[in-house]
């Protein structure tokens, strides 16, 4: 069990770090939302691995992962609708070109 924890926890931390990097370094709004989803996947993996026991994964951990997935889907839906709205007004999804204050 400990071997698996040693394998999975660094991997999930790496996924979260990759998501944060994507959000910080990329300029396309869609790519940034993809980064958020990668980060959420890392968090879900961490939740499941931390609930791992000899008889499978703890039900509470699974429940929390399920709620996290729902929140991830909701965040993606709202973020993508904001992207579409932004595109309607600015004609681009590049964050560097969204500096104008006029809406």
């Amino acid at each position: 069990m400990n071997e698996l924890l040693q394998l999975y926890i660094p991997a999930s931390i790496l996924l979260i770090a990759m998501g944060i990097y994507c959000m910080a370094a990329k300029r396309d709004l869609i790519k940034i939302v993809l980064g958020i989803e990668i980060m959420t996947s890392g968090v879900n993996l961490n939740l499941i691995v931390m609930g791992l026991g000899s008889n499978g994964v703890d039900a509470l951990a699974q429940s929390m992962a399920l709620i996290s997935m729902t929140i991830g889907a909701c965040v993606a839906a709202v973020a993508l609708s904001i992207i579409i709205n932004t595109f309607r007004h600015y004609g681009t999804t590049d964050v560097r070109k969204l500096r104008r204050l006029r809406w």
Binding site: L4, I30, V33, L34, E37, S41, N44, I48, V49, L52, G56, V57, Q62, A65, L66, M69, T70, G72, A73, A76, A77, L80, I83, I84
Partner: peptide, 25 residues
């Protein structure tokens, strides 16, 4: 990892619903 329900939800939500939303956007 013995979490089959989470596996099914992951497949349905992330590989299905969110991917379709991304594709539409």
């Amino acid at each position: 990892l013995s979490a089959p329900f989470i596996a099914v939800f992951q497949l349905a939500i992330y590989a299905g619903a969110i991917a379709v939303l991304f594709l539409a956007t």
